[in-house]
Structures are given as C-alpha cells and as structure tokens.
Design a protein around this nucleic acid. Structure first.
Lengths: 149, 149
DNA sequence: TAACATAATTAGCCTTGGCTAACTCTGTGT
DNA sequence: ACACAGAGTTAGCCAAGGCTAATTATGTTA
C-alpha cells in the first residue's frame, strides 16, 4: 500500500483526485465540466487544480484532451476513497446520521485524520458493526440512547 | 447555549479564541507572545488574528494592552473547548490513541464537524464509555480487537 | 531619567484556492 | 468547408492566513 502523504496533497487536491478517480472508473475518462460541477467550483478553478495534479504525476492531462489517472494517482485515490467510505459507514450505520450529512462530514474529516486515528477508527467500526449486528441487547440500547435526541 | 456559528469563525480563528480563553481562565489575561508560541505562529500573525476577533466582539484588545474575553467570546470558546475535549476523550479512552496524537486530531476535526455529528458523537461516546466500564466482556474484546495491530 | 531589551504592531510579501471575463480549441451541422 | 456552440484555458482579481523585517511602546535598570 502506497504512502498517501507522499506528495503532500491539500484537502482540495485530494477532493479533485477522488472525483477524477470516480469518473475514470465509471466512464474511462474524466472531463473538466463534470469535475467542476461535482465539486461545485468553476471550470477555471478545476483547470488550475488539474495542472497541479498533473505536475505531481497523479493524472494524465494533455490540454483540451480527456483526463485519466496515472498508476500512482489511482493508488492514492483508492486509499482516500476507502477512508471516505469507512467514515460514511460509521456515521450512517452506527450513529444513524442521514447519508447526505454523513457524506458532507466525511468529505471534510477524511483529509485531516492521522493515519493512526484512521486505522483505529476502522478497527473500532468493524468491531462495533459486528457487535451491533449480533448482539440485539446492545443494538437496542444503543439505538435508544442515540435517539433520545 | 449560544450559536457557535453566529460569527462565522474560521478554524484558525477558533483556535486563537480557544487559546485566549485558556490563558484568560488561568491567568486572568492573555499575551500575544504566549498565544503565538502556543499556536506555533509568529507574533505578527497572532496580532492580525486578534484584530479580527476584536472586530467580531469576541475579545477585548486595546493595542499594547492585555487581552481579555467578552461574554460572547467566553461562551463560544467554552463550547469549542467542550467539543475538543469530548473528541480527545473518545480517542484516548476508547480508541486508545496517545494523548498527543488525540489532541492533534481533535484540534483539526473539532472545527469541521457539523453540529448534528457532534451531538451524535457525544451521545455515542457517553454510551460506549458506560458500556465499556460496566461490561468487562465487551471491554476485553474491544481492547483485544483494537490492539491486533 | 535615560537607555535599552523586550513586547507589540505595521508594512509588505507569499501561497492556496476560489472567482469573472475574455480568449482559444474542437467537433458538429449545414 | 466553415460557422458556431460549447469545452477548456488564460489572465487578472480577491481573501485568508501565514511569513520577515522594520518600527513603535513599555517598563526595568543603571
């Protein structure tokens, strides 16, 4: 597994990388217009961000052409998305947050957790999910407790 | 309880406010030099930040004089610190993170959690702490699971 | 009380990451 | 074959929040 901190991505850059990865996985390529719409920024801001990711060898981006991922970029994006989805799962399945609220929070928190904290959170989530699913007494008490507002 | 989002503080501004609150609570006043050292910034950066907090009526700051909190500033800082400490407690007592690692993460995460997420996390922490302390089987299994790496 | 060290401030710079407006490609339709 | 819409880019702006260097207050000490 690669070192995600290898190329010192800012939160903003990580979000661009993730979005490109998702589009490339789905369609085989990514486009500025879609990226900009997804991240709620203007196309010119997206272009600027892509130049940085390109300099860092995380994406292939020839001006006016389609965008694809480098191997390094894919590896890093996959790690970021794994983090993101783990946090969403915890927020939705255990804390019972709405999907949209969970996504918004995950998207911000994902970037600033240390590697150690993320590992502990992942283990904790796995343990709690298992416990929650197999122990109905625990499940009932937790659910009651969390919804007392 | 006051609305912490009332004056749209940035993460950086929230950190300054918290530090000033801690110093004022301890000594009755705060000083630029101490704030700058605590937050690892230069004094000129601290001065700039304090001007903003002062404009927002969160602190009293007459140039070259000691710094104190307004009532509003105290209220907001207290809320921020409560958040901060709740997250630290969860990271340390449940996830078994080192105090320093927990503090670093809390300091960053605290600013970007939604109010709803924070409330759920607080409830979840209370529940888990109670369960952890009274159910030795749960405690044993969780501790084992979390230290399998 | 005058000088000097230290605290605080100011001025001016940099980077990140947005924005708008104007421009340049590119490919599709007639 | 070429006009034109829409995609992409460039240029130039802004705010936040750092920085250094230079300046101004303050208070202690000889």
């Amino acid at each position: 597994m690669c070192d995600t901190n290898f190329c010192h991505l800012t939160p903003s850059q990580e979000n661009y990388l993730k979005e490109i990865y998702l589009e490339v996985t789905e369609k085989g390529y990514a486009k500025i217009t879609d990226i900009a719409r997804a991240l709620n920024v203007k196309k010119s801001s997206a272009t600027a961000a892509l130049n940085i990711l390109s300099e860092k060898k995380l994406i292939h981006h020839v001006p006016y052409n389609q965008i694809t991922m480098t191997d390094l970029g894919s590896e890093i994006a996959a790690v970021l998305i794994r983090r993101y989805e783990t946090m969403i799962s915890f927020f939705v399945n255990i804390l019972k947050l709405k999907q949209s609220e969970a996504a918004e929070n995950s998207c911000r928190i994902e970037h600033i957790m240390s590697e150690k904290l993320f590992k502990k959170m992942t283990l904790f989530y796995q343990f709690t999910k298992e416990f929650y699913e197999t122990n109905s007494e625990y499940r009932k008490r937790l659910d009651t407790f969390l919804t007392q507002n």
